[in-house]
Design a protein around this nucleic acid. Structure first.
Lengths: 168, 168
DNA sequence: CAGAATCCGCGTGGATACTG
DNA sequence: CAGTATCCACGCGGATTCTG
């Protein structure tokens, strides 16, 4: 896999970095910026959900289970101000607000998917290396493995290939 | 590159998510986990640097400019315990320690590159949408655009295609 | 229904000093 | 050189209350 990187290495690998890396540019780095925006607690999940269909506010609130209104509002507002999510208000009574991904936001799903695929393919190796600090859960760990990711639930035979999971 | 998403959409898009998303599984989600690990302040940069060559501790410390020893140590330790970075100690005097990416860590560069490409391609749109909260810099913003990312500095004509940047 | 406002705990990360 | 240890500021995110 690391050998067919035809045009991929150009990004993070084969170009020349200015050494020492200027801290100002690093802070302003689009990659850093995008990464930090996407990686706060709920953004990835909301983008994923909105990538499937539009949602109304409380629909999202119910769909996520664990998010507070505050965080839901905040995350959506940030996504909206970044142009990743579109907010449409229907002046009904009671009011109804619908959120959907913009084309820009939808386009983000692809590189995110690449990362998601990597995570699914390799989290077993990471968990194996990281002794004892996986995700034990509140009432003991799953004996056959870890619960599959809610963001990537294979089962339709798309690209899943578990390296462990002893075929229970 | 972004068009050959043959099996890519399956990950975050076309599979079915359990609604409501169980919070426990989301916390344990490999994708979430990987994303949060990679997105702390220095991890991405360190992975990028180590993707180019092995570094010694103080080499990294000098190469980054702005990182504290504490954070450098911590980040490297986490990367090591996750199996992404390898640490080799040479018992010389004074001691010398070399860090390098493991194959697992190197394989992470690819999906990260996909995200980096997206960021480079679209951060202009994000900045345009986000009025006034881009990255103004200490002494005013660049008139022709933003400083190019230190993590992805096109210029060798690999895949760069700016949508703005009015060719000043 | 769709928020806004307030309070607060906790984790991330910086600064500094010390060590083998 | 390659760390460790301690202290501390700030921001993320949760809980709660109130509103149009």
């Amino acid at each position: 896999m690391a050998t067919r990187n035809t045009g991929v290495r150009t990004t993070l690998d084969s170009h020349r970095l200015p050494i020492p890396v200027p801290i100002d540019e690093y802070e302003c780095c689009p990659v850093t910026d995008v990464l930090r925006r996407v990686s706060d607690k709920w953004t990835l999940l909301l983008i994923t959900l909105l990538g499937r269909q539009p949602y109304r506010f409380n629909e999202l609130h119910r769909a996520v289970e664990g998010i507070s209104q505050r965080m839901l509002t905040r995350t959506l507002r940030v996504l909206e101000s970044d142009g990743l999510v579109e907010r449409e208000v229907f002046p009904t009574s009671p009011p109804s607000v619908e959120y959907r991904l913009t084309p820009l936001g939808a386009s983000l799903l692809e590189p995110l998917s690449a990362l998601a695929s990597w995570a699914v393919d390799h989290h077993a190796e990471i968990a194996a290396s990281r002794t004892g600090t996986g995700c034990p859960g509140p009432a003991g760990r799953s004996p056959a493995g870890f619960p599959p990711s809610p963001l990537d639930r294979p089962g339709r035979g798309s690209f899943e290939r578990r390296t462990d999971e002893p075929s229970n």
